[in-house]
Simulated assay, not measured.
Amino acid sequence: MTIDLQGVNHITLACSDLPKSIAFYRNVLGATLKAEWPRGAYFELGDLWLCLELAQNVTPRGDDTHIAFNCTESAFDYTADHIAESAQQWKENTSEGASLYFLDPDGHKLELHAGSLQSRLAHYEKMRPEGMRFFH
């Protein structure tokens, strides 16, 4: 038997106000609401299964941990402008590729990014930052 991880199955985020979070993910991020119950909701966002779960205490992280959503370069500016109208930014982009770093209603750190692992690695292989090693 071997380890057989194939990617992310789903992400669950705690929320303090379920209707407000449902509205954010549906109206601001364009997620498709698939099911809702008194303490939660399921969304589809591209290939992602996203779950919201009502919680009494939601504690945003103080570090750089975040979830990044993919976006095509051609749709990035429109999508970023749409999100920026409703969401607070938590960080400015200083990395390769277009990114918008924003918060959901409970302060979960999210990112809209146009790029891929391959484009990020190609960028750093050209720059060769000190101490960075590459594995092929």
Rank of each mutant, 00 (worst) to 15 (best):
M132R: 00
L48Q: 12
R133Y: 11
T59V: 15
T94N: 13
W37I: 11
G30N: 01
D63G: 12
N93H: 06
E85N: 07
Q118W: 12
G7D: 07
E125N: 03
W90G: 04
L18N: 06
K109I: 09
L18F: 03
C71R: 06
V58A: 09
M132F: 05
W49T: 15
L112V: 13
G7M: 02
T2H: 15
H123D: 05
T59F: 02
D106V: 00
E73D: 15
R61H: 14
H82T: 13
E73Q: 11
K91V: 12
V8S: 00
A41M: 05
A14V: 04
K91F: 05
K91N: 03
D77F: 04
G115P: 10
R61N: 13
E44L: 14
H82N: 08
T94W: 14
A75T: 06
F43K: 03
M1Y: 11
R61W: 07
N9R: 13
L33N: 02
E92P: 02
H113K: 10
G46P: 07
D104P: 04
P38S: 10
G107V: 00
D77Q: 10
G40L: 08
K91H: 04
G115C: 07
E96I: 12
A75V: 02
E53A: 07
F69G: 08
S116G: 08
Q56W: 02
A80E: 08
K91Y: 00
A75E: 14
Q56T: 01
G62L: 15
N27A: 09
D106H: 07
D104G: 03
L33T: 08
D63Q: 13
E92S: 12
S119G: 07
G40E: 07
T2V: 04
N27W: 05
Y78I: 05
T72C: 10
R39D: 11
A35I: 08
H82Y: 10
I67C: 12
V28S: 03
S86N: 07
L5V: 10
E92A: 14
P38T: 00
T72I: 10
G131C: 01
D63H: 14
W37P: 02
T2E: 15
A35G: 04
Y124Q: 00
F134L: 06
A68C: 11
N27Q: 15
P38Q: 09
R133D: 11
Q89D: 03
L33Y: 09
L52F: 12
E130C: 01
W49F: 14
S99T: 12
R133A: 13
A122N: 15
E73P: 01
S16T: 14
I67N: 12
N70V: 09
E96G: 06
Q56N: 13
W90S: 04
V58G: 09
P19H: 11
A23Q: 08
L54Y: 00
F135G: 03
A98I: 08
Y42F: 15
E73H: 06
G97R: 10
N93R: 08
R39Y: 14
A41F: 06
G40F: 13
C51L: 15
M1P: 01
G97N: 06
Y101R: 04
L110F: 10
D47K: 13
V58M: 09
L103C: 09
E111Q: 07
F102I: 07
K109E: 00
A35Q: 14
A80F: 01
M132K: 05
S16W: 10
R133P: 00
T12G: 00
G40I: 04
Y124H: 09
S116Q: 09
L100D: 01
H113W: 04
H113R: 06
